[in-house]
């Protein structure tokens, strides 16, 4: 029997990946049918990437909203396990990410650092999942016969504009605190470096994370920012290196449902400044409970 002889690397025609978006645990194309071209540093055509429309965003928010109940109701410890699982999956596909990022113009050193730190960061937030409550909760002194305590609860669906300067680590560093706090999110990947974001969607898709908890779109900030900011079913928006006028626009559009607006500007994600439990707490709401008791201050400790 003759051996199939095009299996050598020189003879073989490489199969190219279609870069699609990640919505509700699926990998659809944009409903708009549009795409833009991503080029390498020296101008070679790397990939066609979805140019998402507002309707893709609308669908992603729907998926995120549907996923919110289940994700926020999971035990905090279990959320930590799932974040750890994402890190495991990313570890196994490291070389693919390094390859993609170097093709897009990062140095090998930078690319390695991006992936290694992304894995570390996921582990970091996996650990925080069941600990930030204890750190942020308080028992409050009150003058009436109540046991009064406050604790953080997830805010809901968060829209995210990932930074351009750190194609994977920036995205992971913004996403991880959101989901470790029980929120769900819709992320617009860096339009300059979208490839590793799309591939990261594939990591999420194989890592026990329920569909819809994280949704990743590709496209342009100027087109999508207004919808990221004014959608009534989005509870918070986090921005990164957007311009002042873009941030102002986001703030103005966010007033309709009093969205929380955060901008993580000039954060060097590879430093320690790029990770903190306070990123989790940004997207938490504090619930205070007044529990009636018989007496004040435990004079008779009967509650």
């Amino acid at each position: 029997m003759a051996k199939i002889n095009n299996t050598n690397d020189e003879q073989r025609l490489e199969v190219l990946k279609t870069y699609k978006i990640y919505v509700g645990g699926q990998f659809p194309r944009t409903e708009s049918g549009r795409y833009y071209v991503v080029k390498s540093k020296n101008g070679d055509h790397l990939a066609n990437v979805c140019q998402c429309s507002r309707k893709d965003f609308r669908d992603a928010v729907l998926a995120a909203r549907n996923a919110f109940g289940g994700w926020s109701a999971r035990a905090a410890f279990n959320r930590g396990q799932i974040l750890y699982r994402i890190a495991e999956m990313l570890e196994g596909r490291k070389s693919q990410f390094v390859d993609e990022m170097t093709k897009q113009g990062l140095s090998l050193k930078q690319a390695n650092e991006e992936v290694n730190l992304s894995i570390e960061r996921l582990i970091y937030y996996a650990g925080w999942c069941d600990k930030y409550h204890a750190m942020a909760s308080t028992v409050n002194p009150v003058a009436s016969s109540h046991f009064n305590f406050s604790s953080p609860e997830p805010t809901g669906v968060v829209s995210v504009l990932a930074p351009d300067d750190s194609p994977l680590l920036g995205l992971v560093s913004m996403m991880a605190p959101i989901i470790s706090g029980g929120n769900t999110c819709v992320i617009l990947a860096s339009s300059k470096y979208p490839l590793s974001a799309v591939t990261f969607g594939e990591v999420l898709g194989t890592s026990d994370l329920s569909g819809g908890v994280v949704n990743i779109l590709t496209g342009f900030v100027d087109e999508l920012l207004p919808y990221f900011a004014d959608h009534m079913d989005v509870n918070a928006i986090t921005l990164s290196d957007q311009s002042e006028s873009q941030v102002t626009l986001a703030k103005e559009k966010s007033v309709f449902n009093l969205k929380r607006v955060f901008q993580y500007k000039n954060i060097n994600w590879i430093t320690e400044k790029g990770q903190s439990p306070y990123f989790i707490l940004d997207l938490q709401e504090i619930k205070t409970t007044w529990h009636p008791i018989e007496n004040i201050g435990g004079a008779k400790a009967s509650y």
């Binding site: 004014d230 959608h231 079913d233 449902n257």
Partner: peptide
């Protein structure tokens, strides 16, 4: 012109 939420 704004996408709505069932909460309202």
């Amino acid at each position: 012109g704004i996408y709505q939420s069932s909460n309202y």
